[in-house]
Nucleic acid binder design. Structure first.
Lengths: 119, 119
DNA sequence: CAGAATCCCCTCAGATACTG
DNA sequence: CAGTATCTGAGGGGATTCTG
């Protein structure tokens, strides 16, 4: 299947709803790290099921890492950008520049002004 | 909606099945131009309906242009990459490099070897 | 706290048939 | 040649409930 092309696959799971925003939140976090509950709180409207699925996908793709501390209670689960995850943020920044250059309508996120955002 | 973020929208319509391959075919064509039937023939497995929809989306997004010659019969319809379309190809190339660097499994398209392809 | 399990809706993409 | 129209099935994503 042509659809199996590497680039195509990459774009496709990045395009899933919330994936990009999750990566961005990790990028903004200290040490590019965030906890499950932190992500859930700052990604307004995301459900636990979707957050959980996206994190698993991104982890499977090697873009993020999960460290679980189950010695304490409650359990602590931290997600961090990997080197490949950090590099893809740079590509997302390029896309951001492209979008700002060519797209007349700059639709704001509810959370931030796109033209001012960390990307 | 956070989902309305400009970058997110860009990624999402690029991620639609066939979109990237259509852009690539135009890129490869003389003058970055291809006819409807040429696209249909080289994108093995695409249906006319899907090709038609993708082309309309890409045109609406300003990535491609459509020139119709209805003075002749049969009608001739040509699609060309716009400047913004050409620029996004460069970003796709970056993603390609990223994928080749970080993805161990380089799944081939049926049409070409990813590592050798024009991207 | 960090999830897994269910149920349900809705859109996307494929197949097929038809037209100016 | 370059589409449009209609039907169908699979899967993504939301809401809600339950658990170690």
């Amino acid at each position: 299947m042509q659809d199996g092309c590497t680039v195509n696959l990459t774009v496709r799971y990045l395009a899933r709803k919330w994936s990009l925003l999750i990566l961005l939140e990790l990028y903004k976090g200290e040490g590019h790290t965030r906890r499950f509950s932190e992500l859930k709180d700052c990604l307004i409207g995301i459900t636990q099921k979707v957050l959980s699925s996206r994190l698993k996908e991104l982890e499977k793709e090697g873009l993020i890492e999960n460290r679980v501390d189950d010695t304490s209670f409650p359990v602590k689960s931290e997600y961090t950008l990997t080197p490949s995850g950090l590099e893809i943020i740079e590509i997302v920044k390029d896309m951001k520049r492209w979008a700002l250059k060519w797209k007349i309508t700059n639709i704001d996120c509810s959370c931030q002004d796109c033209s001012q955002c960390v990307l």
